[in-house]
Design a protein around this nucleic acid. Structure first.
Lengths: 335, 335
DNA sequence: CTGAAAGCGCTAACAT
DNA sequence: ATGTTAGCGCTTTCAG
C-alpha cells in the first residue's frame, strides 16, 4: 500500500520510506500493471484522440507527440478515425452515435480533439454533457470546454504579412481555409490586420477560399494570377494549397520568387519537397501533441483532487517564420 | 464462465445456450474489460508496432489499417518510434537495449515490423531469441520469422517496365532505394528482368541510388539527365524520389511527359500533389496494416492452441499500376 | 504515517 | 455442457 502511495504521489509517506521505495522501484525496474490499476481504481488510464482530418501527415505528427507523452505518464492512447480521413476532401459527416459510445467515461479518462473535429458544435455539446475532460488543439476557447493547446494563429499570419511588406510587396493576396476551421479564420484576420496597419488594402478580389488541398490551391491561384492587377505575393493558409499555387504559377510560366512570392503554413513535409521550397510558418505539431496529453492529464488529476496546482487552461506554443526560396523581394520595388 | 467461453469461442457450448448469450451480449452492448482479461489470462492483448521510417505519411497509412483491425479483434495497439523518424534521413542507429525491453512477452503478445526496421538482422535475432510472435511488412521471408505481409515488388516493377517499353521507351533508367531495403532491391530486380526479357539493356550509368527522399531523387535525376544518351523514362523506387526527378527536369526545362516519362512507387499523397501527377504503383498500405494484425492474431491463437486452422505465413496483396500524366509515349518512337 | 481486508472483471483449473 | 473456486496486481476503505 505504501508503495502505491509513493508511486501515485498521493497521501503522506515519510521521506525516508519514500526514498527507500523509490530505490527499490528503480532497482527492479518496476512498472505498475496498467490493467490491474484500471480494474481497481475508477480511472481507465486511457485517452482517446478522435480525428477526422484527411491530412494524415498532419495528424501523424501530433500523434507522435501524444504517444510520447502518454508513455511518460503511463497512459494508453486510443485513436479513432471518423469520417473519410483517407480521401482527399474534408467536411464529411461525423457519426455522432458512434462517437457518443466512444466518449463513455467508463472507457476513457479524457479526449483530445484536433482540428477540424474540435470545431464541431454538436460534438462539443456531447462532450460537455458527458462531462468528459477534453483538450482541443487549435481554435479559440469554446463554451465550457476551456482546455486548449494552440499557436497564436493571428500573430503568425500578422508576422508573415509584415515580412511580405518588408520585402516591398504591396499587392498581397490570401487563400483562406475552409469556413469551419477557426484557426484558419484567425490567420485571415492576422494577415488582414497587418495589411491594414501598414496603410495598405486587401482587395476583395485578392481573397480566395480553398479547402486545404493541393488542387484547391491550384484553382484559387489561377483566379488570382488572372487578375488585371496581379498580386505579387500570395499567402496560402496551409502548405498543400501553397504547393498548388506553385504549380499554377509554373503552368503560367510565372517565375518564383522573381515574379511572385508564395508562402504557406504548417511547415509540412510538402513544404520542403516542392521546388522551390516554401516559405512558411512552422507549427510545432509534435510539441502540441505532447502538451495536449500533459494538459489533459494534469486536469484529470485536478478534478480527482490528486493535485493542488491549478491547471492552466490555455497553452500557446511558439511558431516560427521559415523563409525559404518561394518568396523574396517584390519585383516592382526592385528598381 | 460459459459467457467467457462464448466470447472467446473456446471450449464446448451448446448451440442454443451460445445463441442466447450472444443475444444478451448484443442487447447490453457488452464488451469484455481488457484490463481484467489481461490480469487474469496469460495474454496481454497488446500488439506492438515498432517503426523507424522517417516517412511518417507512409507509416501512418499502415497505422490506420492496424488500428481498425485491432479494434475489431479487441486488441490494443502500442506504437513505438525509434531512430530519428522526424528527420529527413534514414538509417539512423537503433537503440537495441530499449527495443529489447519493449519486446518483453509479459507486456505484448506480438510485434509488427514495417520497413526498414524489418530488415534489421540484429533486431530479428532479438525477436527470435525472445520468441515473440512477429509479422514483418514487405521484404522476403527471414530466418525463423516466417510471418509476412507484402506485395510482389518484383512483379510490380516488372509490370511497370513492361508499360514503359510498350510506350516505345528503350532507354530506361532507375533510381534504386537504399541498400538495406529488401523491397527496393526486389523492385530493381523486377525492373531489370523486364528490360532483359525484352531484349533491351539497362546500362550501368542508368542506375542511380537514392535514399527515398525528394532531395536525393533530384540529385540522381540530375546525373541521369546529364548523360550524353539521355534516358527517356525514369523509374524512381518511391514517389518522393520521383517528385525530385520532376523538379530536376523542370530546372533543366525538360518537359514531362513529352520529353521524359517518370514513374514512382507507392501512390503516396505526393504522387497526386505534384504537377504533373505521377504514374506510380499503388501499394495498398491500409489493407497491409489490417492484414498484418489479423495474421499476427491468428498466429497467436494457433500457438496458444485456440485454433485448429493452420496460419498462412505469407500474405501477398494486390498492387496496381496507376498511369497518370507524368508518363507517356516515347518521343523518339513518335515519328 | 503505515498496514490489512476486500474487491474490481476476467480466465485457468478443476469439479460436476 | 456448464458451474465453482481461486487469484491475477492494484486501489479503496478502514484500522491501527
Amino acid at each position: 500500500m505504501t508503495v502505491s502511495r509513493v508511486v501515485n504521489m498521493k497521501g503522506n509517506v515519510k521521506q525516508a520510506t519514500a526514498e527507500r521505495i523509490q530505490r527499490a522501484i528503480a532497482k527492479v525496474d518496476y512498472r505498475p500493471n496498467i490493467g490491474a490499476r484500471r480494474l481497481s481504481g475508477g480511472r481507465t488510464y486511457q485517452i482517446l484522440m478522435i480525428f477526422n482530418n484527411p491530412n494524415v501527415t498532419w495528424t501523424a505528427k501530433l500523434l507522435i507527440g501524444m504517444m510520447h507523452a502518454c508513455r511518460n505518464i503511463g497512459y494508453h492512447l486510443l485513436i479513432e478515425g471518423v469520417g473519410d480521413y483517407e480521401g482527399d476532401t474534408i467536411g464529411l459527416p461525423i457519426d455522432y452515435e458512434e462517437i457518443t459510445k466512444l466518449l463513455d467515461p467508463s472507457r476513457i479518462d479524457g479526449v483530445i480533439l484536433p482540428p477540424p473535429i474540435c470545431f464541431d458544435r454538436r460534438l462539443l455539446e456531447i462532450v460537455r454533457e458527458k462531462a468528459v475532460p477534453c483538450v482541443r488543439i487549435a481554435g479559440t476557447p469554446a463554451q465550457d470546454i476551456q482546455l486548449r493547446v494552440s499557436i497564436d494563429n493571428f500573430a503568425a499570419a500578422y508576422e508573415l504579412a509584415n515580412y511580405f511588406i518588408s520585402e516591398g510587396h504591396e499587392n498581397l493576396a490570401i487563400i483562406k481555409g475552409p469556413g469551419d476551421y477557426v484557426a484558419s479564420a484567425l490567420r485571415f484576420e492576422g494577415f488582414s490586420a497587418s495589411i491594414r496597419d501598414h496603410g495598405l488594402k486587401l482587395s476583395p478580389s485578392n481573397i480566395q477560399t480553398g479547402n486545404f488541398d493541393v488542387q484547391s490551391g491550384n484553382e484559387c491561384a489561377r483566379e488570382l494570377l488572372r487578375l488585371k492587377d496581379r498580386p505579387t505575393a500570395i499567402f496560402a493558409s496551409n502548405d498543400e494549397m501553397a504547393a498548388g499555387v506553385l504549380s499554377a504559377a509554373q503552368e503560367s510560366r510565372i517565375r518564383i520568387p522573381e515574379e511572385l512570392s508564395v508562402a504557406g503554413f504548417d511547415d509540412a513535409p510538402i513544404a520542403r519537397s516542392v521546388w522551390p521550397k516554401l516559405t512558411t510558418i512552422r507549427q510545432p505539431l509534435r510539441a502540441m501533441g505532447e502538451k495536449s496529453v500533459e494538459l489533459l492529464e494534469s486536469y484529470i488529476r485536478q478534478i480527482n483532487n490528486e493535485s493542488d496546482e491549478t491547471v492552466q487552461s490555455n497553452v500557446l506554443l511558439d511558431y516560427e517564420l521559415k523563409v525559404r526560396q518561394s518568396s523574396g523581394t517584390c519585383p516592382i520595388a526592385k528598381h
